[in-house]
Amino acid sequence: MDAIDRRLLDEFQHDLPLVPDPYAAIGRELGIGAAEVITRLDRLCRAGCVSRVGAVIKPGCAGASTLAAMAVPGDRLEQVAALVSEYPEVNHNYQREHRLNLWFVVTAASREDVDRVLADIRRRSGIEVLDLPMLEDFHINLGFGLQWT
């Protein structure tokens, strides 16, 4: 990753120009051509450094979601984690260091659909599922300030 890659990541986490040829517009700011911008972004995506180039949607705008937590006994963690990850409505699933050791996000078209998934996981696992929907979202305007040192 060179200085131009870093600038692509630092300066274009937001405000990708909404013009017909946005990669050319970025290139003009970086002093490179559109084709090179595309090549670099493609490489950064393939390397996994960039998840995608696109829109970040405000949570809760498109359907319903919640953060759910479960306290899973250690010897059942693999099984319950796999059961949870099976659901297409589950888009993040993390093991965390706490008595509540399984944390996942459920996103669906409606709150009823979210409830149905939570109830299903509860029933199939026999373990209580805490339901922690977002009440308020404190807006992060500028993306995340990366530090390269």
Partner: peptide, 29 residues
Amino acid sequence: AAEVTARMVAMIEAGVIRRIGAVPNHYAL
């Protein structure tokens, strides 16, 4: 295409779209 960008501008103004850009993968970085 003009309607795509116009609607995306409207969704930005309404706060539905937070931002458009390169989404870094913190873990990979």
